Simulated scan of single mutants.
Amino acid sequence: MCSKSRFFIMRLALIPLFLMLFNGCAATAKSGKDVEFTALVERASSQYEAGLLTEAEASYRKVTQLRPDYYEPWLKLGNIYVRTGQLEAAVRMFTKCTELRPDEVRGWSNLSLTRLKQSLAVLDEAQHHFPNDSAGAAVLRNSRQSLIKHLVR
């Protein structure tokens, strides 16, 4: 066999080695990203549990940017927004939850509870526009009582 043929065969034999090395580097890079992602999720969770809602919100926002299909951060963001009185934002987060996982009850339950909070807030706000002894105030009180009555059935 001539030296050119041997050289060519040696080069062909090295191709699988280079592919293995290249794939190993790619796997290491991927696992590095996975480790970073996991650390971000854990940091967000720790912040949330510690009541550091502003920090947790920022961390969960980053998580949703990296993995928009990941359910938990949307749920946590919704909970943060409920706790901070941002009910419209909470509704958007819980709606996203129901879109991502329509078979998951937490998104639906939290969405409905948030809508109820909104309903009560509307009735409470409306009370400020009517004198306490007016017919309008009575209608609003009855609406509020009716809503609550239906909830406790």
Rank of each mutant, 00 (worst) to 15 (best):
L147Y: 07
D124A: 06
F8K: 04
M10C: 15
L75F: 12
P16H: 00
A44F: 08
E104W: 10
E99N: 12
R6F: 08
K62Y: 09
A89R: 06
T38Q: 08
R92V: 14
L77M: 11
A135M: 01
S119C: 15
A121Y: 06
R11T: 13
A89P: 11
E104Q: 09
R106H: 10
Y48L: 04
W74E: 04
W108S: 04
V91P: 03
G107S: 09
A56M: 11
S59K: 02
V122R: 10
Y48P: 03
L123S: 00
R61Y: 12
Y60M: 09
E49L: 12
R92P: 13
V82E: 08
V63D: 04
A137H: 03
L14I: 02
Y60F: 01
V82Y: 05
L140W: 04
N132T: 08
L14G: 09
L120Q: 08
F8E: 07
L66R: 11
N132D: 07
S31P: 12
R67W: 03
E125R: 10
M1H: 08
E125L: 10
L120V: 12
Q127C: 08
D103S: 01
V105D: 14
F37Q: 03
P16A: 03
R141W: 05
I9S: 04
L100Y: 02
R67H: 07
S45R: 13
D69C: 06
I148K: 10
M20R: 02
H128R: 15
Q127T: 06
L77I: 00
L77P: 00
L120F: 13
R141E: 01
L75H: 06
P68C: 03
K62F: 09
L52V: 14
A138R: 11
R43L: 12
V41Y: 04
A39L: 03
R106Q: 12
S31C: 14
G107Y: 12
N110W: 10
N142Y: 07
M1P: 08
Q47W: 08
A90G: 05
D124W: 05
R101C: 00
I80P: 10
A137K: 01
G32A: 01
Y60A: 00
A137I: 06
P68N: 04
D133S: 00
M1W: 11
F94K: 05
A90C: 04
K76E: 06
F18P: 06
F130V: 02
T84P: 12
G136F: 02
S134Q: 08
S5P: 11
F130G: 12
L113V: 14
L14Y: 04
R6C: 13
P68R: 02
P131Y: 00
F94N: 02
L40M: 13
D133T: 04
L12T: 07
H150D: 15
K76Q: 07
R106F: 14
T64I: 10
R106D: 14
K4P: 01
V122N: 14
C25T: 15
K33S: 13
A27Y: 11
E125Q: 12
P131T: 00
L66D: 12
S146P: 14
